[in-house]
Amino acid sequence: MTDPLPAPEGVSARIRTALAGVLDPEIRKPITDLDMVGDIAVDDSGAATVGVKLTIVGCPAADTIERDVRAATARVAGVTAVDVDITVMTREERAALTEKLRGGRAARVMPFGPGSLTRVYAVTSGKGGVGKSTVTANLAVALAARGLAVGIVDADVYGFSIPGLLGLVDDAGASVKPTQVDDMILPPVAYGVKVISIGMFVDDTSTAVAWRGPMLHRTIQQFLTDVYFGDLDVLLLDLPPGTGDVAISVGQLLPNAEVIVVTTPQPAAADVAERSGLVARQTGQKLLGVVETMSGMPQPDGSVLELFGSGGGAETARRLSKGQESPVELLASVPLSLALREGGDAGEPVVVGRPGDPAAQAIETLAARLASQGRGLAGRRLGVTVF
């Protein structure tokens, strides 16, 4: 005698419970919390039909969501077959979703300013080509691997490279496009990191962005207000090199940001790197420290080849310490590394592809240091006057 099948209504309840473990890959929340699960029906034979409502037509995560829903439903006891009925949210349902995601916060309100629990790190450099974006991408991935919620704003509008460094490109080399739900932009995710970049809004990678101050300011502001990052532990901004409009805009929009200056070992590089740090100080931001890239390359015989000299990072930190209450530290020295370069070209960060590489280990040490700072308002200006 065979065991009787569970009652269909009981199976439906268990399916809905199981679907709480299915995350929307863009929003990174359970689809049940996002009201994306519609009707669930189970017939007497155990065949289940699950309704799923996508946010928009052509949702890039549709295949992933359908696959995960099918798998989660099939694992429920009493289910003998699964059919997933895909539909699209109504305008009213999308409006309710964006309202829920904002948590009552008005549209176009920037959530990362003073008073935010998110630690904001602005990564800058005096000149291009020093590995600033590579450090940003690898640092973000290393922090995410520690269980932190991490986002990147690729604010290097003229020389955007973060999508390529994180593999957010299609077969033609164009950046993956974000999904837009009404006036809310959902950033693509790579290696657990939410990413937004101007490269995701141009038609091809050879397009030159020729914008002046007001347009640049509005773009950075929109990235910080209209993009749904959720509750982040860490937000990293990859700034363009130098002391131009974007650096000033970020200083105005995020005066609470902590600035990391990237430089090379050449002593002459300290002159240029110092200027980018000074601009940050002038806008009220805190100078967190210096990261030196392209430092000595370990050789098979145990010696170190200092191709770009030595001391530039320490000298930059020393100069930027002048006028500060506490000294600016040399946070890390990242050695020249073939694996680091190859990982960047392949869209696979070295901290993932070659974690034993000396460059990966240096970035991991930096990530461990930043992760230990945690979240909170300790040491931050709260804008409160005591009478």
Results as ranks from 00 to 15, higher is better:
residue 95 A to G: 00
residue 343 G to D: 12
residue 30 P to L: 06
residue 369 R to S: 15
residue 66 E to D: 08
residue 70 R to M: 02
residue 200 M to H: 07
residue 130 V to W: 09
residue 31 I to V: 11
residue 46 G to T: 14
residue 2 T to H: 06
residue 340 L to V: 12
residue 261 V to P: 08
residue 10 G to L: 07
residue 124 T to H: 05
residue 227 V to Q: 14
residue 57 V to N: 09
residue 86 I to T: 04
residue 38 G to H: 00
residue 354 R to V: 14
residue 241 P to G: 04
residue 136 T to I: 08
residue 206 S to V: 05
residue 112 F to I: 04
residue 243 T to F: 09
residue 233 D to C: 08
residue 289 G to W: 09
residue 353 G to K: 15
residue 77 A to F: 14
residue 362 A to R: 14
residue 106 A to S: 10
residue 180 Q to A: 08
residue 55 T to I: 05
residue 111 P to H: 14
residue 8 P to L: 09
residue 374 G to E: 02
residue 265 P to D: 07
residue 45 S to V: 10
residue 328 V to Q: 12
residue 82 V to A: 06
residue 227 V to W: 14
residue 136 T to K: 08
residue 188 P to F: 10
residue 317 A to E: 06
residue 312 G to S: 11
residue 227 V to M: 12
residue 359 A to N: 13
residue 44 D to S: 15
residue 348 E to Y: 07
residue 13 A to P: 03
residue 347 G to L: 10
residue 9 E to V: 12
residue 137 A to V: 09
residue 298 P to I: 11
residue 283 T to H: 03
residue 15 I to A: 00
residue 63 D to G: 07
residue 220 I to M: 09
residue 280 A to Q: 08
residue 385 T to K: 13
residue 352 V to D: 10
residue 95 A to T: 07
residue 30 P to N: 02
residue 221 Q to Y: 13
residue 238 D to L: 08
residue 283 T to C: 03
residue 120 V to K: 03
residue 168 L to N: 02
residue 108 R to Q: 15
residue 102 R to T: 02
residue 66 E to R: 09
residue 330 L to W: 06
residue 13 A to R: 10
residue 203 D to Y: 02
residue 199 G to C: 01
residue 205 T to Q: 04
residue 264 T to G: 10
residue 66 E to M: 11
